[in-house]
Design a protein around this nucleic acid. Sequence first.
DNA 1: CTTGAAAGTTTGTCACG
DNA 2: CGTGACAAACTTTCAAG
Lengths: 149, 149
Amino acid sequence: MLRVDSIDQRIISCLVTNARSSFADIGKDVGLSAPAVKRRVDKLLDTGVLRGFTAVVDPAQLGWGTEALVEVHCRGNVTPHDIKARLEPMPEVMAAYTVSGAADAVVHLRAASIHHLETALERLRAVEIIDRTVSTVVLSRLLDRPQAP
Amino acid sequence: MLRVDSIDQRIISCLVTNARSSFADIGKDVGLSAPAVKRRVDKLLDTGVLRGFTAVVDPAQLGWGTEALVEVHCRGNVTPHDIKARLEPMPEVMAAYTVSGAADAVVHLRAASIHHLETALERLRAVEIIDRTVSTVVLSRLLDRPQAP
DNA sequence: CTTGAAAGTTTGTCACG
DNA sequence: CGTGACAAACTTTCAAG
């Protein structure tokens, strides 16, 4: 396994807060020079601890304001890989998890409208391996943290 | 309301893919000069369409590999604002939504271990306004898209 | 109102100690 | 890991469409 020391964690913290901050600025925060910060960031990207950098957009303002959490129950024995393969082509699928309990998976859907959500659910239910779904529509988003400290 | 044209959408798409790409590179993709791209990005940040830029980290490699989706049932009538205020101080709460159906909210928890998850759940259940919780532990993460196109 | 070009400044990046 | 040097990018200003 690889080592991520406290300086790396502080660098990650800086980049999570603002992915476009300069290496020099990060260096000021963590007490390192800009090249040293860059070397660490490059290594974190290489090792996969950092997967990349992304922009945070307001989904509502782009017209993707409707969300749902959907329990998926499959028929027979299906592998997580099967489920993943079926969900991959659907752009409305934001995230999917295999879970404990009765359901085989939980799918996080995001759509442009209730109508769009409905069609996405129909497409989801049309997948052969899926037996039935239990949908929970998100009414409001109370909290949405970028990620852990 | 504000207008986000197709060029803005392509700029956003570029920044979602890589938040650290240069304005010049984005400009090559969308057919604009670097200053023009910067002006648009600044406006998108101002208007709130773009909320900011963040690093995507692999939670497992930082030792936050245990997740759960928790249905929260409250006692009596509580406002979404109340729930939010109680969840805000908990670092394990990644996201929280008010939802349709029997539950008052769904909370996305992330912890360093099953034990950590257990203590986080205990703290969650200790909140006065919360009556009971129904936990679903995430076994594996099938899909995790940064966001919508 | 938005764009592109040019200016000066800042930042990224590499070699070396 | 830090320093210094060079290249690349950012940011402002200004004139044109």
